[in-house]
Design a protein around this nucleic acid. Sequence first.
RNA 1: GGUGGGGUUCCCGAGUGGUCAAAGGGAUCAGACUGUAAAUCUGACGCGCGAGCUUCGGUGGUUCAAAUCCACCCCCCACCA
Length: 435
Amino acid sequence: MAQDKDDLIQDLSARGLVQQMTAEDEFKQHLGEGMKVVYCGFDPTADSLHIGSLVPLLALKRFQEHGHKPIALVGGATGLIGDPSFKAAERQLNSTDVVEGWVESLKSQVSQFIDFDCGENSAVVANNLDWTQGVDVLSFLRDVGKHFSVNQMIQKESVKQRIDREGSGISFTEFTYMILQSYDFAELNKRYDCTIQIGGSDQWGNITGGTELTRKMNRNQVFGLTLPLVTKADGTKFGKTESGTIWLDPKKTSPYAFYQFWLNTADADVYKFLRYFTFLDEQEIVAIEEKDKEAHGRPAAQGILAKEVTKLVHGEEGLAAAERITEAMFSGTLADLGEDDLEQLAQDGLPSSEVPQDLSEKPLTSLLAECGMVKAGREVKDALGRNAVLVNGVTKGAEDNMKTSEIFTKENALFDRFFLVKLGRRKNHLFTLPR
RNA sequence: GGUGGGGUUCCCGAGUGGUCAAAGGGAUCAGACUGUAAAUCUGACGCGCGAGCUUCGGUGGUUCAAAUCCACCCCCCACCA
């Protein structure tokens, strides 16, 4: 892994991680002058970050590995307002208590990625509520607002669709977001001598607002860099699956589901994602790609991607758990699983639940819908009709729908209490009989 | 406050008295083909195993019958004040 301070931008560029930057030549020179302080903001819009935040989060880590000091800013203040950038519609405000709770969750989550104990360039976590809370309206308007031209603000691409497009609009609240974020940069510059802000490409308008404000208020030159938006070759949205958003919180998305998400990456995206989401260097990635090209059949890249990213986010243990389940569900056979293995699967994050006491009148459709395997019983009905439902390896058909009480018996169970239900190729659920 | 345009099932978007659980597209799910890809084809796609039940911003009303007509209300947008 490269440790030279000079080639950070080169590394980022090679990975395709540089979308835009301010004053390129001066920025590069600035980075070459020694340790710099870099910040990236994360707004609390939920109780966990999702993989959309992974690129900037890892970018902070990349800066730190190159000797710079990262600040992870959690938007306790900006989260109360809502960023309008490239959003089609006005957002619902969240209550202050709720946002406060989310701030705490994000703080600890963000902290996993950067090092707080490495000397001079140890990371810092900040909350912009700390310096926004006390500011009164008049001071804010006179000291900060005066530096912004509404004429310029409405020209920003990020809010343009809200202003131009018929059928939408933007409240003054959200319109002010940019000013708040700009103020953060100026404030961090003052407090921590922070001179760089990074963010997703949708943040360009907010970032340049900050560099300008810092110049005007503090008379300091600061820099901004944006990272590309993660897109998929097939045009669908990155980070969403049938079961919803892929969260970083293992309680919301198990390491197993997380691992599976990456394993299912399309060929067309996988090498790009290796560059975006792992710390493997360019040569290694090229080598993987070459090897996959020569070999026929399934590429190795998805497996490497899933392994690396799961390890980064959930650690060695999370990865081991994910691999255990994957192995059991997709490669091994049921007979290979011992009683301990089955018990372990549930703990590792394989979805599981107890078989209800009273199965009479409860069709398979309801049972599988209630445990969250499918959204509606119809999907089960469809799958049954196609012989795509397996209980402990035995195919069930439409005629078995009403026979749950005959299926889930102690005699049919593995080790007297386990049922591994498979629906389709990828959905697995472990049922246990109550002891 | 005035004028005009809107609010349809996850999203976009047809539908203006019965033939409407509501066209079409997207997303999603399952099957075939495969590599737990992609593309393609097939089926499903409000809820329910089923009989059936509940929807078209809200509330009332007209009618044998309303997403469609009427009244009032709520919300969004544009322009004007």
